[in-house]
Design a protein around this nucleic acid. Sequence first.
DNA 1: ACCTGAACACCGTTCAAGT
DNA 2: ACCTGAACACCGTTCAAGT
Lengths: 227, 227
Amino acid sequence: MGAMPQPPAPRKTTGRPARISRTEILRTALRIVTDEGVARLTMRRLASEVGSTPMALYHHVRDKEELLLLLLDDYAAQHLHRPSTAPTEPRERVIAAATAIHEVLADCPWVVEVLTADDLMSKSALWFVEQIVDGLTACGLTLESAVHGYRAIWYYTAGEIVIRTTAAHRRAADDRPTYRERVFTDLDPDELPRLAEVSDRWAPLTAQDIYVHGLTALVNGLLARPD
Amino acid sequence: MGAMPQPPAPRKTTGRPARISRTEILRTALRIVTDEGVARLTMRRLASEVGSTPMALYHHVRDKEELLLLLLDDYAAQHLHRPSTAPTEPRERVIAAATAIHEVLADCPWVVEVLTADDLMSKSALWFVEQIVDGLTACGLTLESAVHGYRAIWYYTAGEIVIRTTAAHRRAADDRPTYRERVFTDLDPDELPRLAEVSDRWAPLTAQDIYVHGLTALVNGLLARPD
DNA sequence: ACCTGAACACCGTTCAAGT
DNA sequence: ACCTGAACACCGTTCAAGT
């Protein structure tokens, strides 16, 4: 869960009226991050886009890290909608909830910076976490094992996002051949026979989306071995 | 595989003798990163530690990103040792290879920055990748499915490192209560019954190391469902 | 209460010049 | 070939002051 810091502190009626609001700051920040990537989001840039000074921002957010967390919270709240009908079969409910979280995160590459800056996600994600934990218990796991299972799913999901996102980012910005290309052209088939055998299929193979495949395997494995 | 850029280009005998070497740069960088964390590794700081100027570094590495990748390559080469005896049972070989990679990465928190900056690991890790892919095929998967399985394992492993490392980092630097603490104290038991039920056990539960547990489940699931 | 200006203490990297 | 000095174009954040 990302740190959702205190709400803007209920507006007092005394004092100078605010010229910029936290909402406006977050809206602008989200636009910058969506259009140009998280690297381009600086406090100075953001300040000028909302027509203010860098220091005015610090009156609405504690620091840049809090800004990023608020941004993820906001994003999740807007995009993570509970389905009108969830599967009744609990195993399927687990898969569906994890896939929902994954889809939302996969659509905003900038989350990586935030994921690695905090441990979990927004309040909006709690319902999905509940679905996963509850689904696993409904399949026979103890509550403790279900929580562990949820964490394994979260590791897998976050890892997929982090790795795939940065790999894509790299590919885009890359003129020079990747390390993989260089290494895979001169594999020793005696030492690494399997890798040598797939070396020329590696790129298309690893370009395939295997999230659901791996997720299903993981969930099956978690349920087959309830300790 | 991290980008291992060209080796330092075989030393020519003409020209000025080098005052600093790539090896010396990497040794110093590794010390900084180990002692004080990757955030403290700046080109300027590194230059002064090797007794040189920032720009001298650019004669030995292309840029900071290449420096970090070289660092991971170096680290993996030094710490990722092939075991003298590997399990004969292929499923166990897969688990052992993944665990070996995980252990080395888990011991150097700074890898997170590098993992998210490139897609995979060093050349030294290839043997372990081979063990995983070969072990999975030996259990009956096609070569393609084995590669997909390897990727699922890699996502899970990288995710565990990234999430656990940054969570630990956060805990250390944190005075204010975490978002989880704030959220978990006022869960609605009607809406989120399972989470409410575990809310006070959540912290110790998620502090447990479940890497091997999840890995085993994932591998079992991958093998039980070879499509 | 909210905002500003100036300053502090940094970054990575380029460029032109030295030896 | 290797290294230096100075500069460019930035950062996040603090502090003291204004309205």
